[in-house]
């Protein structure tokens, strides 16, 4: 079942990239969920689509630009979207969540315009929306590896600051934490990870890989570090099983990966409820 992943380069690329995003996606996802920012991942994934459409349009209309990898412009748009979200959040201090629909709908609107202006693309846009086991090139894989290393180093270096900011912003202020800078750094990491995950999971499902494993972990974890460890474990399990299934069933991996995360979530909720009822019966409550 797994042998083919050692045989073909394109499958190796997909597997390694998948494992990397299965690590950093849920890792950042924990901070996103506890800060109640789950929809930011959706907004940034939609603006990434705009970047991809812009890249494909440039390639089609500008003769000098050939062989431009759409992922890179997707990353640029995602990072710009992250900066814009922060700006808008500051503008609407009492309605900070407004930044998300503004960027999300703006991203989709501009994306649709660019796609229409190009009269459609030769490239299969479907693979960007739902992921593909065949779309990841070796150079993409290296880019994702570099992004993963950067994210891991930043999270390790700023772990305690990220924890304090997520748990209690007032306490972060009286601890001398430079909240604004750390938050900007964090949202830039989210933007890069979303753009990196897009080829394996797809734009429309990338936020699920960042949040659903966390939803499962929250049900059973006893501490923050345990929540991170379980989220990553669930993320990796979903990516591995999802990729193998996608290859053998010839379906986009985004769908299979997300369905595995949903399955894990259901199993966790049911097992948690069963164990709670068992202990209540045992204690005679």
């Amino acid at each position: 079942m797994f042998e083919v992943f050692f045989k073909y380069e394109f499958l190796q690329n997909a597997a390694v990239t998948g494992m990397l995003v299965g690590l950093v996606g849920p890792l950042l996802g924990v901070f996103i969920v506890v800060r109640r920012l789950s929809l930011i991942a959706d907004a940034l994934s939609h603006i990434t689509l705009t970047g991809i459409a812009a890249s494909l349009l440039l390639e089609k209309k500008v003769a000098m630009i050939t062989d431009l990898n759409p992922v890179y412009l997707g990353m640029v748009f995602s990072v710009l979207g992250a900066v814009l979200i922060e700006r808008i959040r500051k503008m609407y201090k009492n309605y900070e969540e407004l930044a998300i629909p503004i960027i999300l709908s703006g991203g989709i609107g501009l994306g649709v315009l660019l796609i229409s202006l190009a009269d459609g693309f030769n490239t299969d846009l479907f693979s960007y929306l739902f992921g593909s086991v065949a779309a990841v090139s070796r150079s993409n894989m290296w880019t994702v590896l570099i992004i993963t290393i950067i994210v891991l180093v930043i999270v390790v270096l700023f772990y305690k600051e990220l924890f304090v900011l997520s748990f209690d912003e007032d306490h972060a202020k009286v601890s001398g934490v430079k909240g604004r800078w750390i938050h900007l750094l964090f949202i830039l990491m989210v933007a890069l990870v979303i753009a990196s995950s897009m080829q394996v999971v797809g734009i429309l499902l990338v936020s699920a890989l960042m949040t659903l494993p966390v939803a499962s972990a929250l049900k059973i974890a006893k501490s923050f570090k345990q929540t991170i460890a379980l989220s990553v474990l669930f993320g990796e399990t979903s990516v591995l099983i999802g990729l193998v299934l996608a290859y053998h069933l010839s379906v986009p991996p985004g769908g299979t990966i997300v369905m595995i995360t949903i399955l894990i979530l259901i199993v966790t909720i049911v097992s948690k409820n069963v164990s709670t009822s068992f202990f209540m019966v045992k204690e005679g409550v």
């Binding site: 305690k160 304090v164 209690d168 601890s175 929250l218 501490s223 923050f224 570090k225 345990q226 929540t227």
Partner: peptide, 19 residues
Amino acid sequence: FNGGFPASVLEVVKSGLVS
């Protein structure tokens, strides 16, 4: 504070050492 925050008491107290 967010009552559902998945932190242990020890983690919360240790966060006081950030300053």
